[in-house]
Design a protein around this nucleic acid. Structure first.
Length: 235
DNA sequence: GCGACAG
DNA sequence: ATCTTGTCGC
């Protein structure tokens, strides 16, 4: 599958922000899900010098959370980390990786914000719009918004408000553990995004697809420094 | 102007 | 994100 959009190289900060403002109009914050059989978690790990990035994807079956496939890809970093412009740093690697996957998953979850963003166009939105696939942003800390502490039980949540808009929610996926910050990326509502994240987090704080992708990215990053392939991938 | 600021 | 040791708790 070919993404309908591309991220130019050597983009200036101003140009990147303008691009977000324009692309934000394409985001659909309503449920346009279709049948969801596979869900994928996407994450990126970096080396110590901040030169190379390893993107990882973990594809799971939505019904029983069994792993369908895990894949990683190493690339050079071309954009610095700037709050609000994370997608320009991580998407090149993620997109390249996603294009290697046999079948694009029915729902994507990434480590970062969706519309809970200054220009309503966080990483999850950019990814979702590029591939025109339902996407959810699930961050470990909020980027903005008035955040109230949700109840202590698993499933408790509070809405994330910013400039009069409900942009997501703080969701407790594990009793007594810090909540995660969920916001729609594309083709999904705040309510559905929260439901999916909760459903995908039966045991740990982070949804299983994201947790496994995070794990895969770090392992691959470590193996890049010291090749220790215990389980060589087939082919 | 000052502080905050996903990964 | 990454650096970085031990430690408390289920």
């Amino acid at each position: 599958m070919i993404p309908k959009l591309d991220i130019p190289d050597g983009l200036s900060r101003d140009a990147a922000e303008s691009l977000q403002g324009a692309l934000a109009a394409q985001v659909v914050v309503e449920d346009r899900l279709g049948r969801i059989e596979t869900v994928a978690g996407l994450d990126v790990a970096y080396d110590r010098q901040g030169k190379r990035a390893t993107a990882a994807i973990a594809v799971l079956r939505a019904d029983d959370l069994s792993v369908v496939e895990t894949r990683t890809l190493d690339t050079a970093i071309r954009f610095p980390y700037i709050p609000g412009l994370l997608s320009f740093r991580e998407l090149p690697a993620i997109c390249a990786l996603l294009q290697q996957v046999t079948v694009i998953p029915d729902l994507l979850i990434c480590d970062g914000q969706g519309i809970a963003h200054p220009r309503r166009f966080g990483l999850a939105c950019h990814l979702g719009v590029m591939f025109d696939v339902p996407a959810i942003g699930c961050a470990k800390t909020p980027l903005l918004g008035a955040v109230c502490e949700p109840g202590l039980a698993r499933g408790d949540s509070t809405t994330l408000l910013d400039r009069g808009d409900i942009v997501g929610c703080a969701l407790r996926t594990r009793s007594g553990v810090k909540p995660v910050y969920v916001s729609p990326g594309h083709r999904i509502s705040v309510a559905s995004a929260c439901e999916w994240v909760l459903k995908l987090s039966p045991r740990f704080r982070l949804p299983e697809p994201l947790r496994l992708a995070d794990q895969a990215a770090r392992t691959a990053q470590a193996d890049r420094l010291i090749p220790h392939p215990k389980k060589p991938s087939p082919r």
